[in-house]
């Protein structure tokens, strides 16, 4: 963390300037995302937005998340998006024409309404003196607004990373284990949907009665009754062994 960010987490002018600059970048890149005609430019705007949010995480005393944000979002997810864009070559698509006339206006009005109500509802109680995190007013309970206690004490006791680790493996251990199911599904999904070559005979159970395939479905070429040969099974095993990396690559 740079000294500026270190200062920023302690509040004061550094935090204000960081917030103004980084917030402007975040807003600008978000508008860029929805207004850029070129999908690749939109993806780059998304990276910029994620970087800005990572800085805000650091300011908000979430150092671990800031790093994760960089590695997972900016480093993996957006790269995946860019990879798919390059693979499909859809970058020149003119994608700003509305599906229904007046849709853009309607959507913008709805968006403004959503923003005003969300901002009023969420930020309203947190705008007073006491809502400056870790300030004297917040800690002593004087001043207006809901107090923002700040994470300085929590992070000082165990450190951000150790604290998160303890939480993950105690209070949130079940949720943590359950994400295993999610990741298995994601891997299976990527393989099922992304597999390029598929032996149609594998989609039919050997020894069972099946109606002939529909014309034009592309799978009628092979005889279902032949049964799996060694070569088929070998190919199946090969794909399965390369499971996670291959699934990822193909997305």
């Amino acid at each position: 963390m740079t000294p500026v960010l270190a200062q920023a987490t302690e509040g004061g002018a550094a935090e204000l300037w960081t917030f103004i600059i980084v917030g402007a970048v975040a807003l600008g890149s978000a508008f860029g995302l929805i207004l850029m005609r070129n999908a690749v430019h939109a993806a780059l705007m998304l990276v910029l937005n994620f970087l800005a949010i990572a800085v805000l995480y650091a300011v908000l005393q979430a150092q671990f998340l800031a790093v994760i944000q960089l590695i997972v979002y900016a480093g993996a997810i957006v790269v995946l998006f860019l990879f798919v864009l390059m693979l499909l070559g859809v970058s020149r698509e003119d994608s700003l024409t509305a599906r229904v006339p007046g849709q853009k206006t309607m959507a913008s009005v709805l968006g403004v309404l959503l923003f005003v109500s969300l901002a009023a509802a969420t930020a309203g109680p947190f705008l007073g003196d006491a809502s400056v995190c870790g300030s004297e007013e917040a800690l002593t309970g004087t001043g207006d607004g809901v107090p923002c206690l700040g994470l300085a004490a929590v992070n000082a006791a165990e450190g951000n990373l150790r604290g998160l680790g303890f939480l993950l493996f105690t209070d949130y251990v079940w949720a943590f284990e359950v994400t295993a199911v999610l990741l298995v599904i994601a891997a299976i999904g990527a393989i099922v949907l992304g597999r390029r070559q598929e032996d149609p005979s594998e989609l039919v159970e050997p020894g069972s009665t099946v109606l002939p395939a529909r014309r034009g479905s592309g799978s009628a070429a092979t005889e279902p009754g032949a049964g799996p040969t060694d070569a088929d099974e070998g190919a199946a095993t090969e794909t399965s062994e390369a499971t996670p990396s291959e699934g990822e690559e193909r997305t």
Binding site: I34, A42, L85, V90, S108, L110, C148
Partner: peptide, 30 residues
């Protein structure tokens, strides 16, 4: 100094922009 509400306003703005983007863009990837 920055009251916590500013961050919440920024988040609300980003959320609304994202929602509008889903409604107005035609490209599925975007």
């Amino acid at each position: 100094s920055v009251p916590a509400g500013y961050y919440l306003i920024l988040a609300a703005a980003l959320f609304s922009i994202g929602a509008v983007g889903v409604l107005i863009r035609r490209s599925v990837i975007v």
